[in-house]
Computed example of a mutant assay.
Amino acid sequence: MEGQAVLLENKTAIIYGAGGAIGGAVARTFAREGAKVFLSGRTLSKVERVAREIVAAGGTAQAFQVDAMEERAVESHVAVVVEQTGRLDVSFNAITAVPQPGTQGIPIAQLSVDSFTAPITTYMRSHFLTARAAARRMAEQGSGVLLMHTPEPARLGAALVGGMGPAWAAMEAFNRNLSAEFGPKGVRAICVRSSGMPETETIDVVFGLHANAMGIPREQFQGFIESLTHRKRSTKVSEVAEMAAFLASDRGSGMTGTVANLTGGLIVD
Rank of each mutant, 00 (worst) to 15 (best):
R176Q: 13
E140G: 01
T117V: 14
A135I: 13
I120A: 02
Q100A: 15
T150Y: 11
V161Y: 13
A131E: 10
C191K: 03
E140R: 01
L178G: 09
H77W: 01
R176S: 14
F92N: 04
R132D: 11
F128A: 00
V98C: 02
E181Q: 06
K185T: 05
I108N: 11
F128V: 03
E152W: 15
R136K: 12
S91F: 08
S91G: 11
E172R: 15
S115N: 07
Q141W: 05
A118P: 01
A134P: 02
G142V: 02
E172M: 13
G86T: 02
Q110F: 02
E83T: 01
M164F: 14
A169Y: 12
V192F: 11
F128Q: 04
R125N: 08
G183M: 07
I95W: 01
G165Q: 08
I120G: 07
G102R: 11
R137A: 04
P99I: 12
T122S: 07
C191T: 07
G183D: 14
L147G: 08
G165V: 06
I108E: 10
E140L: 09
P151D: 12
P107L: 08
A135S: 08
K185R: 15
E83D: 09
N177V: 13
I190Q: 11
V80G: 02
V192W: 04
A170R: 00
A94I: 07
A118G: 02
I190P: 09
A139K: 04
I120K: 06
P99K: 03
G163M: 04
G165L: 08
T103K: 04
F182H: 04
S76N: 05
V81F: 00
I106H: 00
I95C: 05
T130E: 01
G144M: 10
Y123T: 09
G163L: 08
P151I: 01
A118C: 07
V192S: 08
G144K: 10
Q84N: 05
A169K: 11
T85I: 05
I106V: 03
E172A: 15
Q84R: 13
L88I: 01
M171V: 03
G157E: 07
A97E: 01
G162M: 09
L88G: 00
G186P: 03
A189D: 04
A79P: 00
L88D: 02
H149C: 07
